[in-house]
Structures are given as C-alpha cells and as structure tokens.
Design a protein around this nucleic acid. Sequence first.
DNA 1: GATGAATGAGCATTCATTCAT
DNA 2: AATGAATGAATGCTCATTCAT
Lengths: 200, 200, 200, 200
Amino acid sequence: MTKRQEQTLITHQKLVDAAEDLLKKNGFNALSVEDITNAAGVAKGTFYIYFKHKEDIVAEICRGYFKEIEIQINKMSGSNLIEKLSLYFDNFMKAVELYGINICREWIRASIDPNTAPDNTDMSKWQYDVDMLKNILNNAIKNKELKENTPVELLTHLVISQLYGMMTCWCMSDGIFEPRDWTKKFADFQLTAILSEYLI
Amino acid sequence: MTKRQEQTLITHQKLVDAAEDLLKKNGFNALSVEDITNAAGVAKGTFYIYFKHKEDIVAEICRGYFKEIEIQINKMSGSNLIEKLSLYFDNFMKAVELYGINICREWIRASIDPNTAPDNTDMSKWQYDVDMLKNILNNAIKNKELKENTPVELLTHLVISQLYGMMTCWCMSDGIFEPRDWTKKFADFQLTAILSEYLI
Amino acid sequence: MTKRQEQTLITHQKLVDAAEDLLKKNGFNALSVEDITNAAGVAKGTFYIYFKHKEDIVAEICRGYFKEIEIQINKMSGSNLIEKLSLYFDNFMKAVELYGINICREWIRASIDPNTAPDNTDMSKWQYDVDMLKNILNNAIKNKELKENTPVELLTHLVISQLYGMMTCWCMSDGIFEPRDWTKKFADFQLTAILSEYLI
Amino acid sequence: MTKRQEQTLITHQKLVDAAEDLLKKNGFNALSVEDITNAAGVAKGTFYIYFKHKEDIVAEICRGYFKEIEIQINKMSGSNLIEKLSLYFDNFMKAVELYGINICREWIRASIDPNTAPDNTDMSKWQYDVDMLKNILNNAIKNKELKENTPVELLTHLVISQLYGMMTCWCMSDGIFEPRDWTKKFADFQLTAILSEYLI
DNA sequence: GATGAATGAGCATTCATTCAT
DNA sequence: AATGAATGAATGCTCATTCAT
C-alpha cells in the first residue's frame, strides 16, 4: 500500500471514529458534520470526500456493528438449535449493550425512518436478521432437528420481534431494563415452549 | 362555560387535529409549527399559547391514543386471564394499525429519544404499559387465577417486549409485516406456553 | 394604516433599498442575503418573511425600474411618432444611466439566464419592451402616421435590438461608451432612415 | 515535437473539448472544474496545470470562436463595403447560431461582467469587434468608397450595438427570435440608409 | 506532468420561539 | 386570546484552489 492510500484509510477511520464517539455521546439528533470534522481534526469539506451525505457515515457505523454480530453467529456452527438460538440472542444483546444506548436508538430510529439514507439501498438490518434466523431454522429442518411442517416464517417473526422488542424496551427504559437477564430467561423459557412442538 | 372558554377549546382542538393530520401524513420529521398553524387556520404565535414546545402537542396526541387503548382494556373486566391478555394484545395492535405507521413511528421515536419532550414529566407510555400489565397479572394472582409464586416482573417484560417488538417490526417492514396476524398467533401459542406453568 | 402595517412596509423598503445599494455597488454575483440583511439592519431570517428566494428581491428591484420607464412612456402621448420613439429611446437610456452599470448588468444577466427566478412567471422585460414598441407602431398606423403595410414586427425588432445592443455595449465597455450620445444620433439618423419609407 | 509535448497538447485539448461540451449543454453557472476534469478523464489537479483559473478555459474557448469569425472576415477582401459589412453581419450571426445559445449567453455574460477573468488582460471581444469594424470603415475611406468626413466612430458603434443587440435579444427570447432573418433585413435596409450619405 | 486528498470560506434556507401590538 | 413580524442560531453542502506524493 502506498503512503497515500494509507493516509486515506487513516482519515476515513478518523472520521468514523469521531462520528461514532459523538453518536454514542449525544445521539443522532445532535450530530452535525462540523462536529464530526472538528473532532476528527480535518476540514469540513474533507467529510464530503468520504461520504456523499451525512447519513452515510451513520449507515457505515451501523454496518460495522452488524458485521461483528454476523461474525459471532457464524462461529456457532457446531451446537444444537436451542443452543444456537440462545447464543444468537445473547450475542445480539451483548452487542446491544456494548454499543450503548445511543447507537441502539440510532439503529432503531434509522430502521424505522424511511427517509434516512438516500443512497442506502442495502437490505435493512431488520430484513437481514429475518433472513439469518430463517436460515438457521431451515438448516435445522434439513438437519432433522426440526419437523418438516415447522412454521418457519411464524417462528422467525415471533423470535425477531421479541429480539427487537427487548432492544426497544431497553432504549425506552433508558437502560434500566436489563436486556441480557431477560433475554436469558426468554431463551430458557419461552424459546423451549415455542419450539417444543416441532423439535424432533 | 363562557363563550371565551368555548373558543379556547375550539382553537385547541383545531391545533391538535391539524397536527394529528400532518403527523399521519408526513411523520414527525416533516412537522413544523408553521405547518400546524397554517392547517389549523390560526397564527403562528397562537400555537405557543396552547403549547410551550412543539413536542408537547405530539405528546398530547399520543396521550389521546393511549387513553383510548386504556378504555378498551377496562371494558374487558369479566373474562379470564388468557382471554384478557389476548384481548389486550389485540386491542393494542388494532390501535397500532388504526393510527397508522407514521403515528407509530413517532410513538417509538418519542419513546426512545430522551430529548423529546422537555416538559413531559408524565410517566412514559412504556412504563404505563408495564404497570398496566403488572396490574393485570397481580389481579390474576389475587383472583387465584395465577399461582402466588408467578414471576410477575419477568412475565410482564416478556409480554411487553413482544408487544413493542411487533410494533417496531411493523414499522421497520414499512407495513409489510402483518401485526395482527402474528399477534393472534402469539397469543394462541406463546402466551399459553409461557403462562401454563403458573395457571391454577 | 395600522402601526404594524406601516412597520411592515418600512422593513420591506429597508431590504429593497439595501439590496439595491449593494447591487449597484458590487453586482449580482457578490450579493448575499446576509449582506442585505446586515445593511438593512434586520436579522437574516427576516429576509425570508418578505422574499421566498434571494432572486425575488432582485426581480422586484428590476420591476421597479421597468415601472418607472413605463410611466415616462405613458406621459408622451401627444407627440408624433418619431418624437415618441426618440423620447422612448432617450428615456430608456436615461434610466440605464441612472440605474448604473451593475443594475443593467444584472438586468441583462437575468434576462439572458433562463434559470434565474424560480417564481418569476412575469413576462420578461424583453417581451414587455417588444410589446410596448409594437403597440406604439400599431397606434401610429391607426392614427394614420404610418402606412398600413408597415412591417411592424420587423421594425420593432430592429429598434429593440438596437436598444438592447446599446445597453449591452455600454456594460461591455465598462461605461466608456456613452449611451445617450449614441442613442440621440441613432434617433436622429437611423430612425428616420428606417421609417421614412412608411411615414405618411 | 517530443512525445511529452504531444501528450501535453492532447491533455489540453481534452480539457477544452470537455469544457466546451459542458458549456454548450448546461451554461456557465453549472460549470465546475470537477465536471470538466471528470468529463476529460483527468484528475482535478491537472486542470490547474493548464489553466490558472476556471474562467481562463472559458476565455480560451471563446477566443477560439472569435478566431474563426476573424478568419471568415479576412477572406472577404474583394467585395465592396456594403457587401463586406453584410457578410460580416451574416458571419457573426452564423457563428452565433452555430455555437448555440449557451455559448452566446456565456459570451455576453463574460463580456458584461468585469470580474470574470482575473488574468484575462486580452482586449475584450467587444473592443476587438469595434476595432475590426473601424478598420473596415477606415479602409473604405482609404479606398475612396467612403467620404473623408464619414463619422467612423459613430457608425461603428451603431453597427456594433445592432450586432450585439441581435445576439442579446436572441438569448433573451430563448432562441425564438430568428437572428439571421433579422440580420439580413438589417443589412438590406438599415445599413444602406445609414451609409448612403457617406458613400461615394 | 499527473494525481486526488485536503482545505475552508461561503451561502441559502429553515424553524422554534419571542413579543409588541 | 390572537396576531404575525422579528429573531438568529444552526447546518448541510459546494467548489475553486493548493500541494504533497
């Protein structure tokens, strides 16, 4: 890599780091391009070399988080279905806690708001999660862990909405609600109840 | 009531109606005080006679919706616990669909965002729901429908997060996800599994 | 008129005067809303109470000038055709000189540039002048000063383009070219030559 | 010519061609250095190796057009004065039509605006035209086609302002006004009237 | 000569809120 | 109570130009 390419990466990272910091501290509403560039120690115009719109840097930050969760999930290959789903839940919520309440608020806000990212034609995080869970359940059918007649779509939605509900309630309670405790209980408790009928 | 007091009520209602309309049509981000007063047919300054801050009118609109839900719930007094909770769910989601996606987005957005309503010292909608559900469960214990050792807090949170998760996913899917179908399935299916252990 | 309406007129005038001053001094390119409001002694936002777009104040200024010319023209009713046209020319150019080179530059610039005024659906100044001249010639035909077969359109265009050409050359020469001298010579000289064939 | 010098010429031409294209398509206001370099397929910085300022490339483009007109004029040597001037007019307007309305708008705009080209110490196009016409008339005096007492300056200005007026009106009318028709009529008609007194 | 990242001044426009009338 | 003019901070984005590589 040439020195120039290196510099480019560094500047890009400085911007992302600064934006992430500010996002964690103050949330999206208080995020301005000028604040980001000031914090990153570059000129205002530099921002627009790397991002076409203000929203794009937020999208990139979120994408980074999603990637990490995905990596975690893919490591869980060996275990059985309930363990897998429990781990999925736990990873999701661990991530949620790690990122902090403002990032999660932004995550929900952006997912809910259709006008957020003009160029963000990526599949939404929500759809992404739906697909990933469906995949896990379909694989379980293939592996004879679940019956053929399992209502994959229905179960997926129940699980997903529980997951997003946990996160949403956590944000609403301003962090008082303890997501991982409840998540664990959900897994131990509700997941078994839901799946029992279809487990082989 | 004097004629003046009447006029006051009328103007207040005109403002609320106009804001509600705009909120449903365009969502919160596109809502400006000027638009509201224009639509209501009053001067800009009049708004500030009735509401100290822009957010306050939104809070009032949401409060109206919550009230309606509460009234529905209170009518359900006769039935047994599972029926009651099923009805609660159904009413909640019926309301969600009725209000439309933009109102719900605003509802979530406002619930999530701590900076929304400066003067809104009301208990949050979320806390309100938590308390109402706890109440239902506690009453069920008193009425000997549920065992004494029922983990009320835990069950409440599981149910609430499922409820808010449904709504959140509905908004995220831009209305594709059908909340009432899934809600019904949740009630028939998951609720029984969760409660069975504690039902007397 | 109430005190309030008076104040409105005053502020509006302050803005127009300030903008006109700056336009005369620096031309359109150097004209910013902030400069205008600073010069007018009002807040930046006040500008947008009176004008939807920056260009609109320029349009209004120009409209003011056109109006004045029109008033002059309408006073000339008694005289014969050549006198009338000479006076028209002279008034036009007197106005040009009075307004100054920057106003005229803006006038030409705005007339030439189709993207200038978003809301300016007014007939263009050029078309306005064309129509006014046509009118003068048509009236002369009615009054038996000109033959029936006078090529009104052709003469109008020759005269108009001479008029605008004078103004344009004046701007190009940065004021060195003396428009009124040349205009007078044009009238004495060229106008007679052009019209002689058609005069009765 | 070395290979390097060749390359230099090629890059220079690529820039000019790209700028000319964009100018014709969108006019000057929409012309940015980045657009030019993108269209030319070179880096942004490359532009500043060839042109000190953005305006300079426009000046060069216009200069190219002027050169062409000049070449046309110089071919006309044999004919008599009226024919020569008619041809001059016709060539001028043929060029105007050929270049298109956006180039002409820019031409006028640039001629009118004194702040356009910081380094452009060239004689202006207008002055250039004035001098060329004066030259033609002075030569006619020398060749005994015109009387000694012909008011060269006056006639020059009348002719030039008619010429620029035609072009200006063409731009103002957004191309509706047909310059070459009117030009021909001007030549047949007005030119003779103006000159008749001085022709020998 | 070529590159393209970096600069930073510049600018139109929005909008919640105040307050004199 | 009602008005609507006035405020002025806030902000996303553009773009000509520079300069290290």
